[in-house]
Each structure stands twice: as C-alpha cells, then as structure tokens.
Amino acid sequence: MSSPVARPTSSSSESGSQQVPVDQRKRRRMESNRESAKRSRMRKQQRLDELVHEMARLKEENARVAAQIETCAQQFAGLDTENAVLTAQVVELTARLRSLNSVLRFVEEFSGMALDIPEIPDPLLRPWQLPCPSQPIMASADMLQC
C-alpha cells in the first residue's frame, strides 16, 4: 500500500533556482545581523568602560570633597569653641566692669566727688556697640577656604 505523496507543482529546476537566491539572502542577512550584534556589543562595552572610569573619577572627587568637609567641620568646631570662650570672657569682663562701676558709684556717693561712669552696654543684646577700641579685623579669603 502506497500512500499518496504531495509533490510540489513546480518543476525541480524551478525550485532549485529560487532556492539559491533565498539561501544567499539568508546568509547575507545572518552575516549582517552578526556584524550588527558585534558592533552593538562593542558599543555596550565601550559605554561600560566609560561608566566605570566616570565612577572611579566620581569616587575620587567624593573622597576629596568629604575630606574638605571634614577639615571645614574641624575648623568650625575650633572656631565655635573659641567663640564660646570669648563670649564667656565678655560676660565675665562685663560683670567685673559692672561691679567696679558699682564700687565707683559707692565711692562717688560717699566722697562727694563727681566721677564720670559711663553706662555699660549689654554686649549680648548689642554686640555691634561693644566698648572696644577700633581695631581693624584682618581677614583673607584663605581663612574661609577649607
């Protein structure tokens, strides 16, 4: 018993001639796809390399900025401490001056001598009016850089 076999309606010479260009087109397309994929992989690798270099550069810059911040923080802490000491000294000296002025007023009352006792400004409320001799404040931009 033989089963019927489906055969192409075109002749074998016709299918063979059409097969060759299709195979060549397939091969060219596959080769083109391979080249395109290779270029794509190269671009991806190049981009990855660029990103790795940028990451390393940014890490270095971050470390440098962190060191500058630490230096500034240490300088700030030192200046803050110095400011606290100076503020305490101002308070103490103001209290001493008030005490001396009260003694002078006492002497003035009992001696009858007129003494010129200036009023003491409150240095914490009006620091711009401190009774200090005018001295230039020396500063430079280097002092502010960390």
Rank of each mutant, 00 (worst) to 15 (best):
S2I: 06
P4A: 10
V5T: 13
R7D: 05
P8R: 00
T9G: 11
S10C: 05
S11P: 05
S13R: 09
E14K: 06
S17F: 04
V20Y: 02
R25V: 08
R25D: 15
K26W: 07
M30L: 13
M30P: 00
M30H: 09
M30S: 12
E31W: 01
E31T: 09
R34F: 05
R34Q: 06
R34A: 08
S36V: 13
A37G: 03
K38R: 13
R39E: 13
S40K: 12
R41E: 15
M42F: 05
R43D: 15
R43Q: 11
D49E: 13
D49S: 12
E50M: 09
E50S: 11
L51Y: 06
L51T: 08
L51F: 09
V52G: 02
H53K: 15
E54M: 12
A56I: 12
A56S: 15
A56C: 08
K59H: 09
K59G: 05
E60S: 14
N62A: 14
A63C: 14
A63T: 13
A63I: 14
R64Q: 13
Q68C: 10
I69L: 11
I69G: 02
I69N: 06
I69C: 10
E70A: 15
T71Y: 00
T71S: 10
C72Y: 07
Q75A: 03
Q75C: 07
A77I: 06
G78P: 00
L79H: 07
D80G: 08
T81C: 09
T81Q: 09
T81A: 10
E82V: 07
E82Y: 02
N83E: 14
A84G: 06
L86D: 04
T87K: 08
Q89P: 05
Q89Y: 08
E92S: 14
A95Q: 07
A95N: 03
A95I: 01
R96Y: 01
R98A: 04
S99E: 15
L100C: 12
L100W: 01
V103A: 11
R105M: 09
F106R: 10
V107F: 08
V107Q: 08
E109W: 04
E109C: 11
F110H: 14
F110I: 13
F110Y: 15
F110P: 02
G112T: 07
G112V: 03
G112K: 00
G112R: 00
G112E: 00
M113R: 14
M113P: 05
A114Y: 03
A114L: 10
L115I: 08
I117W: 00
E119D: 15
D122H: 04
D122I: 05
L125C: 10
P127V: 02
W128E: 15
W128A: 13
L130S: 11
L130N: 07
P131F: 00
P131H: 00
Q135E: 11
Q135W: 02
P136K: 04
I137R: 01
I137N: 01
M138C: 13
M138I: 15
A139S: 12
A141K: 04
D142Y: 00
D142E: 06
M143C: 02
L144M: 04
L144K: 03
L144Q: 08
Q145W: 00
Q145C: 10
C146Y: 03
C146D: 07
